[in-house]
Each structure stands twice: as C-alpha cells, then as structure tokens.
Design a protein around this nucleic acid. Sequence first.
RNA 1: GCGAGCGUGGCGGAAUUGGCAGACGCGCCGGGUUUAGGUCCCGGUCCUUCACGGGGUGAGGGUUCGAGUCCCUCCGCUCGCACCA
Length: 977
Amino acid sequence: MTDEMPPQRYTVALANEIEHRWQDWWDEHHVFDTPNRTGLLAGDPRHVAERPSLFVLDMFPYPSGVGLHVGHPLGYIATDVYARFQRMNGRNVLHAMGYDAFGLPAEQYAVQTGTHPRVTTEQNIATMKRQLRALGLGHDPRRGPATTDPSYYRWTQWIFLQIYNSWYDTRADRARPISELIPELQSGRFPTPDGVPFDDLGALEQRRLVDSFRLAYVAEAPVNWCPGLGTVLANEEVTGDGRSERGNFPVYRRPLEQWMLRITAYADRLLDDLDQLDWSESIKLMQRNWIGRSTGATVKFPVEGHADVAIEVFTTRQDTLFGATYMVLAPEHPLVDVITANEWPGDEIVNDWGSNAIDAWKGIFGMSDPPPVAVRRYREFATAKTDLERQVVAREKTGVFTGAFAINPTNGARIPIFVADYVLMGYGTGAIMAVPAHDERDFEFAREFELPIVPVIRPSDEWLAQNVVSPTDATDWRESFVGDGVAQSSANSEVSLDGLRVDDAKRVITEWLEAKGLGRATVTYKLRDWLFSRQRYWGEPFPIAYDEDGPVALPDTELPVLLPDVTEFEPVTSDDPDALPEPPLARAVDWVEVSLDLGGPSWAGYGKGARTFLREVNTMPQWAGSCWYYLRYLDPTNENALVNPAVERAWAAGERGDGSPKVGLVDLYVGGVEHAVLHLLYARFWHKVLHDLGHVSTPEPFQRLVNQGYILAAAYMDERGMYVEASEVEERDGGFFHEGEPVEREFGKMGKSLKNAVAPDDIYREYGADTLRLYEMFMGPLDKERPWSTADIVGVHRFLQRLWRNLVDESTGALRVVDAPADDETRRLLHRTIAAVRDDMESMSFNTAIARLFELNNHLTALDAISREVAEPLVLMVAPLAPHIGEELWQRLGHADTLAYEPFPVADASLLVEETVEVPVQVAGKVRARVQVAAGADAAAHETAARSDPRIRELLAGRTVREVKVVPGRIVNFVLA
RNA sequence: GCGAGCGUGGCGGAAUUGGCAGACGCGCCGGGUUUAGGUCCCGGUCCUUCACGGGGUGAGGGUUCGAGUCCCUCCGCUCGCACCA
C-alpha cells in the first residue's frame, strides 16, 4: 500500500514526527517563555521585554474528566494564531493557560468513586495539558496556575479579605479600606444607633456598625437550596423547572444566612464603563439588561385608617401619578398583614355593568371569606406556584383585594390596595402604584378586576385613530397607551402637569413630590448582591473565623487557609426540603476549631487576646478562582504580592486599535458566550475593587472580547428518541442508520449529551495537529457557529501536502527552492497575498487568510522551482496557523533558530499597484464588457476606453446616453435615456 | 411577548462596505498516474440554453446610474430576557 508512496511525502506519519520534534524543541529552548520587564520573570535572552506588550487570553478552562473534544480548542487555536502573528509583528506577547479546577464535577466524581478530588483534578489537568500540548499552542509554561494550588488560592483568599476589609464611599464613588471608614464614623458622617458617638459605642455595636458597611457581609437571603445535593446553588445551576442541573433534584427558594458580596455598589460603574470596552453590542446589552438600571421615583401613598403607615412604591412613570387608580403589593410584602382589613368595606363601587365592583375583587377562592382569609389563601396559592407554572400560566392576572384603601397623594382619591403575584418582592419596593391607562400589565389586571382606567396622557393621534377610541374615556380601550404624549387631567391646587410632555411632566412632579416630602427621584437595579458561599468541599476555604458575636477576618499572615484533608468530602444530602445545609468542612472538627490571638481594633472583632474561634465551613463558589486568574498570569510565582505593581503596569500600558489608551488590562479575551453575564460581570467587579484599592492600574480587566462560535456536529436520534453514538452511524440511500436501524439526523453543539463528540487525538492520528489547527481556522468566521465535518479536513491537509511538495522534493527530500528571483507575476501575487493576509490576521479573519495562502500555494504548484524570495515569506505567513510545518520548512531553508520571532512579511506597496486594471463596463446597469485601463487613469480615459470596446460601441449605437457614471478603477456605467 | 443577530450553489463559506455575486475548500463530473481501490495530479462545476442570451443572494416592495450590501413590510432560523413597575 505504501510502497508506491514517495518517501518524503507530507503524510500523517511525517507530520506527527515533525510536530513532536518541534514541540520538544520549543520546550527545550524556552521559545514561549515571555519575559517581564522586571521582577521574577525578567530574564530576557531574546530581548523582547521592551517591545510593546500584548496580553492574549483564553477563558479559564475547567479540566473535565472526559477529555477535550474538537470544539473546545477552537478559541485556543485562534488566540494562538493571533498571538504568534503579533509576536512576529514585534509585540511581546503574553499567552498562557491555567486551570479552573475547583468545582462540583470533581467533587461529584469523588463522591461516586471515593477518589479524593485532588487526585482526580491532577489527573484531569495532566490529560488536558497533554491534549493541548499536542496542538502546538505557544503558551508560556511557567504561567499556568491551577486554582486548587494553595499558592494560588492563597491570593483568592487575600482578595476576599481585601473585599471584606473595604467599604464603598459613594461620595468618592470608589471602595476604600475599612480603616478609613472609622474617622468617618467618628466624625458622625454616618448615623450611629441612637445617635451615640462612635467612640462611645460598645465594642459589639462598633463591630456591627462597621460590618454593615463591608463589601463582603453575612446576610439572610433567599437562595436556591438543593437538599438533594446538600448545597445552595447559583441561579445558573438551576434548570427552568426548578431542579438542579446536576442530579435533577428539586431546588427550593428559602432564606438562609450566607456570604454576600456587595456588587450592587458597582452597578453604575459596571454599566457605564461598558462604553469603553471593545465587546460585541449583544454582550454589552446582556450585561446592561442583567444590571437593569431604571430611573424613576419612589412615592409614598398614605393608607386609610393607618396614620403611621405609608406604602412606598417605585415607578418610572411618575408623570402618570394622577392616573393611579389602585395599588398592588407583592404577596411577600411585609405590609400585607398590617394593612389587610378585617371585613370587606361597605362601599359600593359601581362598575360599568352597574353592579358592585368590590364583589369581583374578593378573590378566586370564594366570596364569603373575610379579607384576612382571602389574602392568606391567595398568598398560599402564589407561593405554591413554581417558576415553571408562572411562565406557563404566563400573563393571566390573579390577585385579591385587601379590603384596604390608600390615598393617591396627588388628588386625594381613595384607591383600593390589592395583593397580586405580578408584582415581585425582589424588585423596586415590592409594591406598585397601578396606572392601567398607561401600563400594559396594570391594564390587563384592571380589566380582569373591573377597576377604573383613567387616561392622564393624551395618546398620539395616530394611536387614537388606529384604535378608534376617546382620548379621555378609556371605556373602549383595548390596550394601554404606553407611548409619549401630553399630560391631561393631572392638576391639583399646587401643581399642574397638563400640557407637558412626559419628560417635563416627570421633572415637575418629582420636584413637587420632593418639596412635599412625598417622594424623591430614585434609581433601581435588577442586579442583586452576589451570593458567595457554597456548602461544598472542593472550593476555597474562607479566611474567616467566628467568635460568639459573628465573623472575624483572619490576618494575611494566616494565609493560605488550607483545605483540610478529610476522607468524607460528600455533602450531607436529604430528601427533606426542611433539612438544613451541612457543609462537609463542618465535619473536619480539628480544623474547624482554631486558637488565635488576633489583636487589633475592637471594631474588627479582634483585640481579645488568644482564644478559640470556629472557622467558616462554607467554601467559595467556582467563580472565585476565575475572577482574577489573568492577574496571576502576569506574576505567577510572586509570594509577596498578588502581582508586582510594576509588572502589572507594564502589561496594562498599551493602546487600543484606534490609538486611544486601553482601559482594560487584557488586550484580547476569547471565550464562549455562555459567560456573557456571570463570569464577565464578577471578574469586572473584582477588578474594580482591586483598582479602587490601588492593586491594579486599569479600571477594567478585558479590553477586547471575542466570543467564538460553537462547533456543531450531526447528532442522531433513534426511534425511541435516544441519541446514538454519531461515529457509528452510516449514511446510505439518502438515509442514516445505526446498527441497521434508521435514525434521524439533527445538528447540535458538540458534546457528550448529544453523543457527537470528536476527540482531537483521533484527528492528530489521522491528519496531524497542523491540519486540525488549519481546519478549525478555515471552517468559517471565528464568532459564528460552524458544523464539524471530518470529511472536509482533507482539503486543508492537501494544502499542507502541496506546500511541502512545492518546497521539498518528495522522493529525495532535497529543497526545491532556488536563489534566482521570482518572475514578475509570482512576485506581485506574493505581495498581494502578504497585504491581504496581514489584514485578515489583524482582524482575526483566519478563514480568508488561509484562502489567500491557498491561492498563492496553488499558483506555485505550476512552477518548476520556487524562488527563495517567495518561499520564505510564504513559510512565515503559514507559521502562525501551522507552526510545526512552518518551523520545519524554515529550518530546511537554512535557518538555525525558531521563526517565532522572525518579522512577519510586509508587502512592498509599489508591487500592489497594477499597471493596468480591468474595469467592468455596464450599459443600463448590466455588465456588458470589461476593458483594460491604466492604473490611476482619470474618468475621461475610462470612458474613452469603454466607448472604444466594439461590443459597447454596438450596444450604444443609435441610443442616447443620458449620463456616464465612472468610478475610476471600479466601474463605467452608461445610463441610457 | 420584548430585544439582538442571521437567511448567498448540493455543503462550509467569500465579496476592500453601494460598484464584475459565488473567492477558497468539500462534494460531484471528466481525464491522467496506478494491476485495481485509495492516495496523488490536471480540467470542469450557480441555474437555464446547442449557442447567442436570459435568470439568480428567504418573499414582496422602495431608494439609486448601479443593491447580497441601504430603507419598508412579511416569512423562517438562532440566541438572550421573560410580569423588572
């Protein structure tokens, strides 16, 4: 079979031999060791440390036990190509890969098999390193920490302490050390309990007061509690039907005391600073929506018969206040019990049908119950609904009247107060004023409950005409009017909005509310503080201990707080929803109890001499380690600091593409869109805290973000609806079969669940790593999803084979390259290719760069010998994409050192200009001929050339040319009359 | 429902941003090398037509000398959010 094969053909055997040899060579010669300008990693034998820096980063991978499939390295290859290109372009490039190795999968596997998660994690990291090394990625091997290394999580804990020991100064709009809060408290800037001066407070009161300012705090908050897993879960770990993603156990919302991080203090900056980042608009929008800032006003509504109670609502439409005809409290609202009447009011409120509307308000569970019973039943009904039911039942409005009335503060109207689950306790104040004329949800509810609808904004004429209704009487309205318009029926003896447009009306009414002490301008956010503790073993321990009064921070000298080496790391699980979390670390009794002499100020809970504390037994969530890993890449071996500030500044200095200074440390960040909100928001938050405290110099972590598309692959489902192993499916007669049975094909994200994963190892074995790299880059634009097709790989493999054959004689192995100059046509093609490839590499359009290289290479196959002036630039251009064959050919061309630092070819501009250009000629908009004109010729010359073309002359004969449009070098168009 | 993005050959995808639609690759067709298959090499390949020509970028309309590209309406797909006051 192989006896016919030329001995020096670029087969997979030769490719693999070349690849392994160069991977070893790179390691031995430290080719990708990136020097820092100063500090521990400052050695610089290649003299590149002073070059402009470029930090290229991949999202931190989790070392999974099942190994990689070919979808995983797509982004890693892209960053490697870009990093190699920029390194050849004169940049000092930092590119490294660490491991996000804490987390639930290793712990679950440990529970199933009894293997300690550290063992599994180390094995998985080794497997992943082997698979990634085989791709030829040019990472600095010294800069790849794992979050599970104590030398790494020591600094995760240190950052937590920085956050804990900080408060947010809203006046300076930044976080400051907690020690700087004390003078502020002493000066009386912040109110103290009962107005007692801070220094006169007891130690515990001081401590409680200071704790209430910290950016990390313990609070009771409703969380996703999963007794089946024995831990609380993040929202993203819970499926749409309220079960755990792993294990499919029920998840319950219940209040538990947990660590929270005060990310809400940064809401405005997290929102506003997005403008300075080079991220896709869709990702920015997702973050904006998640933060969910809305500006409006809070307004107090007095409650009839309760002189001391007012219901505070948040609204973005304070201009419609005169149209508020009822109020709604969320079922969980604490005032519900306070204001609910004992009996239904005796009022007659006549509805449109002439009957008493109150009868319709008494709820869905029977009209004989008094308000307290009706309200209790409704609350039970509302809380029993799962999230799924709330979605499916969608917008069907339910609720119940409390029997109580509030007073609209603008016009004194008595308005009924309802409880309804369309108002959420978690947003705003958990209560709303309802303006059914100008709010869709309120309108639906008002129709359902026969409530009055009072238009206070005159709708646009267009809307009125379309709906054929009155602007002032909503009886016939089929929907609310939510657009801009002019206020009407909105005046009392002190203020009038009538005639004002929405924005002006908002301003006027807000001023009036503030003057009367009834309300004020307010901004609210959807963003909630970040629940930061988990009941897991395999995570970072908190650097926190407790005395009888609460949490106390451990000093830096106690770091790292090592994860105790237990034998039972499984959480306590249960079927009982009322079971309480029992973190696995609670069982490490010897570790939990710790004797410390903390010393220090009483407000920090210290200062009591040596005594016994109990350690925090929760661990941090997996996000903790991934919030700051990119900073550790800068200075991974530093034992005295998270990162040497001088090193950090050197990497942070730099410019964006447009020459403006960058605000984000990392120049290019590539990863999956699944982290659009959580990881990217958390990391930005931590970075900003570290920036405020002076530990990093930029306000943002990631300047430019690119989301690579998923790799899709055909998946096959049998008649039972089960996925079958895609690699075992055969196609025949236009159908697909698995073990003889017909199966249905679909396309989906490559992975274990669809049984359609393709292992990179199989591709190396069949084609080699350079071919895999090239194929993944050639499939399509980086940010688009693309279907994997193993059959298509031969195309790029043939390219490498042809490239090899163009430069190396397949039978003798001799170089086919000559020193004679290239012919003119080849030289011009080369320089056009260089110009195009350079542009494409800059914009990461690798698929088109590869197409250009194909064209040049195909041109060369027709030549008897290849000139060195073409061969060398070609090899250098291929090298970032296919570095092993690049290095091998470079060496065979007579170079002793790596090409990784060779300058990327630069096109000779004079060779890009053709002497003549072919210009299409249109008659009446249709291309009828092409003519040659001199490059740079003017419009008249174009027209003359076009008119002298015989075909054009024929077509124009006897016709009147009304106009001739000429775009020199591009087109000539004769416009006929 | 709201928001964002995308619809180009049999398939993956190009098109300097309003100027020659289909680069490049797969597949397919034909030929060569080979005992044969595979590999490899050469040529062809949007549809229609013998050809000249005509048609063609999800559908329909518009702007323009000129539209894959801009605008409007609709259809389809993907993603995100989902009672956020």
